[in-house]
């Protein structure tokens, strides 16, 4: 399998590079495939490099010793992960696991570091990406500390629906792991939203029937 320049160009780090440079980076990238639920790497392991998802979805998560999981984010196609460990050279700050069949490529840290040395313009993309990651984590702190579980669930449902095409379907357990709670609380909150007429379950779908009211709920 050959890594396409178009995949690299879709990643903000590489958007400003010319075709020749992209081709040389693509030649250095290692392509890997993962089965659903296969672990890609674990928190605390040495950083293998920057991972770029071509197809499938990857969950980035922290796990407690008791097996409780907090999903930090879900990576969709044409997005990268493990950026922080690439930049600071430390171990992986979280674990990564395939949610469905995943194809991705890995660019080793030394390759990334040499690119930053050669192309100072990449630094702008680095700052933008780290700022986005920081904004996402601040939002998560806000959700976990200031919003009710039903409010968090309402926000998650709206976010999922807004992503449209690339979004991966979520189980109640996975919703709980996103929201920092347990499955039973998600079930209870979902019933609450159903009783209020904001959402309804139709087979394999949760349909948002009153978006404006759900947005108000998400603020609580």
């Amino acid at each position: 399998m050959v890594l396409k320049n178009s995949l690299l160009r879709s990643i903000p780090y590489f958007a400003s590079l010319d075709e020749e440079t992209l081709a040389s980076i693509a030649a250095l990238a290692v392509r890997r495939t993962y089965q659903p639920d296969e672990v890609i790497f674990l928190e605390g392991e040495p950083c293998a490099g920057l991972f770029i998802v071509d197809t499938g979805h990857v969950k980035i998560f922290k796990a407690s010793l008791e097996g409780r999981e907090q999903i930090l984010t879900i990576i969709s196609p044409r997005d990268s992960f493990n950026d922080v460990a690439v930049f600071d050279g430390g171990p992986n700050p979280a674990s990564a696991q395939a949610m469905d069949a995943v194809e991705l490529c890995v660019i080793e840290r030394p390759t990334m570091v040499s690119l930053f040395d050669r192309y100072p313009k990449l630094a702008q993309a680095v700052v933008a990406i780290l700022a986005a990651r920081c904004r996402m984590l601040v939002g998560m702190v806000e959700d976990l500390s200031l919003r009710s579980i039903t409010g968090r669930l309402a926000k998650l449902l709206l976010d999922q629906a807004a992503q449209g095409q690339d979004v991966v379907p979520l189980t109640r357990q996975q919703m709980a792991a996103r929201l920092g709670t347990i499955r039973e609380m998600v079930s209870r909150s979902l019933r609450e939203l159903e009783d209020e007429g904001l959402v309804k379950r139709e087979g394999r779908q949760i349909v948002i029937t009153d978006q404006a009211a759900l947005e108000r709920r998400a603020a609580q």
Binding site: L157, V167, V168, P169, T171, R183, R204, Q205, T209, Q211
Partner: peptide, 19 residues
């Protein structure tokens, strides 16, 4: 099946969509 499973082994994924 999901509700009855005592070990949490079963999960039903939901697609979330706007009406």
């Amino acid at each position: 099946c999901e509700d009855i499973c005592p070990t949490g082994a079963i999960g039903l994924p939901y697609q979330i969509v706007l009406a």
